[in-house]
């Protein structure tokens, strides 16, 4: 199978859906000629023109609000938010308007819009351009949240997001845009709420989101060499969440570590770990561990930044402790 970058996969998904549905359009800062700072949307403007690939002023609340209105009145906007950190600027448009219109209108209105943005530290972008804020969005009923872990997921999830009649936020890891993965030429979609077992194992379940799937896979390699068999699962969407697959895996392995690049406190990892505690309690032989980013602003110093995020070695070390029956936190 051909291999393409995650950036190309997103570009293909949007182009295919724009060809398929004339009501689909792209809007955001530097999306047309510039093709975004990460060059993800390069070439779209030459095929679809500036009527459907629209550069906006630097006003996130303005253009996201416009997209919500456009979606309510029959279009399928794809809004590009240059950095995930800017989501703070559009919380009202996203959480109060987009998420609630269907409910507030008694089902008469829907908001079929996609907000694509990014997450991820270790790009030396400092504290205001390095955050992973998916937990903020996942907390709000009415919003769906997809977190692709490779080019394959990026394409399949984007196409599903564009066709979904609800507001969907897609977080891409900005460090993965140039990562290649096998992606079929023929059309495919990845349904929401269906997790993917990346690697089978029977001693411990490693649940990772986005680039943390790679971290989990590398940890599984380290552990395999030591005789510990780790199962790696990518939920692919955290809203909706494929609870059943996660619970079944934990029933098999009796142990789990949940890894996400958002801050650890009150985060995605806490939510997933809590559900496993509630629904697989009598199958747990060890506490379910959370591994998120440190609860600090992401440092600019490379040396400091690198230690704030989960690493394969860190995951493997915790997995070893859990499998050995060691106390993680004294009780």
């Amino acid at each position: 199978m051909r291999e393409i970058t995650l950036s190309q996969a997103v570009n293909e998904a949007i182009a295919e859906e724009m060809r398929r549905d004339p009501t689909t359009f792209v809007m955001g800062e530097d999306v047309a000629e510039a093709g975004t700072p990460f060059k993800v949307l390069s070439g779209l403007v030459s095929e679809f023109g500036t009527q459907r690939v629209i550069d906006t002023p630097i006003s996130e609340p303005g253009f996201v609000g416009m997209a919500v209105g456009a979606a309510m009145t029959g279009a399928r906007p794809i809004v590009d938010l240059m950095f995930g950190d800017f989501i703070y600027l559009v919380m009202d448009q996203l959480c109060n308007q987009a998420a609630k219109q269907h409910y507030m209108s008694g089902g008469k209105l829907s908001v079929p819009m996609v907000l694509r943005t990014n997450l991820g530290a270790t790009r030396r972008s400092a504290a205001q351009h390095s955050q992973s804020l998916q937990a903020l969005v996942a907390h709000i009923p009415g919003l769906k949240v997809a977190m692709p872990s490779s080019a394959y997921e990026a394409k399949g999830l984007m196409k599903t997001a564009i066709r979904d009649n609800n507001p969907v936020v897609i977080f891409e890891d900005k460090l993965m845009y140039q990562d290649k993965a096998p992606v079929p030429e023929e059309e495919f979609l990845i349904p929401f709420g269906v997790a993917n077992i990346k690697r089978e194992g029977h001693d411990i379940t490693l649940i990772g989101t986005s680039s943390m799937v790679q971290v989990a896979e590398k940890a599984a390699e380290i552990l395999a060499a030591e005789g510990i068999s780790a199962e790696v699962i990518d939920p692919r969407t955290i809203v909706p969440l494929d609870e059943e697959m996660l619970i079944n895996s934990v029933k098999k392995t009796s142990r789990a570590i949940v890894i996400d690049e958002g801050h650890q406190s009150y985060g995605v990892t806490a939510e997933i770990a809590s559900r496993l505690n509630e629904k697989a309690f009598y199958h747990l032989d060890a506490p379910v561990l959370r591994m998120g980013a440190m609860d600090v602003p992401v440092p600019f110093s490379p040396a400091l930044e690198d230690v704030t995020v989960p690493t394969p070695e860190g995951v493997a070390e915790n997995a070893r402790k859990l499998c050995a029956g060691r106390m993680i936190h004294a009780a």
Binding site: S254, H283, D285, A331
Partner: peptide, 18 residues
């Protein structure tokens, strides 16, 4: 050596208890 419960409860995982 590793842990103890003050109230005499046995420290054991939910699975091993079950």
């Amino acid at each position: 050596p590793t842990a103890k419960a003050q109230d005499g409860r046995i420290l054991a995982s939910p699975k091993v208890r079950r």
